[in-house]
Amino acid sequence: MKQFLLNIWSHCVRLNARWPSIGSIAPFIPVIAAWWIVTELQIFPRAFLPGPAEVVRSFGSLVYMGILPAYLQDSLVRLAVGTFWGIALGIPLGILVGLSQRARTALWPLLLFFQAIGDIAWLPILVIWFGYGLTTITVVIVYTVIFPVVLNTVLGVRSIPITLHRAAQSLGASRIRILWEVVLPGALPNILTGLRNGLGYGWRALIATEIIVGTSGIGFLMFDARRSGSVVEILLGMIILGILWYIVDSWILAPIERATGQRWGLVTR
């Protein structure tokens, strides 16, 4: 018996080495199996908890009708626009606060104060100001993304050893070149951490905002499904959220981290 299990295990290890992507799918197999067994045993009524097969079918039909691709696109574009502005405003602000004692004294309390007012807490007033539209959604996402980016950028900038600034100065670098050659790359691992957190929060805020103000998008799809009592579509929405995040993390964020901070030895592998 023991030998048999060891054989299976070594087989899995070899398979995983050959196709690494299988390794990331494998943990989901028992989860899906358990889900399938629970639904087959009819522990809960079908209408409350549909099985994997029904969710896949629903996915097929929603793709076929063009609803899912359109909603997905809406959600991703909103996230991208919000994240872009979050980064474009957050990194310079973080560098300013990280480098300048005066800016830190002036802005740090404000940052902490506004960070505490969570993204969703802004929704009531934003809806009054901007109505049920893209502006409201974008503002919420920018607001969500910007704080982790700013705070982590500040941390990154401040953690650069002073000798690196000095080395650059005594090699003739101007202030602007130091910004580009020392401050930005030095803070990059922390900026990426901030971005990862920010995107994670932003993704959640997006879904919540779509539920409340949206007329399309994955969050709207799920909330709309609730209205018609379609648990299948709600489950589908949840699964899509998870998969999308996994893709963003492992196809975009993780490779950037491997190519920068890990390569440079600033982050341990």
Partner: peptide, 28 residues
């Protein structure tokens, strides 16, 4: 203030971790 007329070698090396050895030496 600091300037390129005075080159400095630091106890902590102070090499730029994001630059290769060649790029570090070519920095000045």
């Amino acid at each position: 203030g600091p300037g390129p007329d005075r080159g400095v070698v630091f106890q902590s090396f102070a090499l730029f971790p994001w630059r290769t050895v060649l790029e570090n030496v070519a920095f000045g």
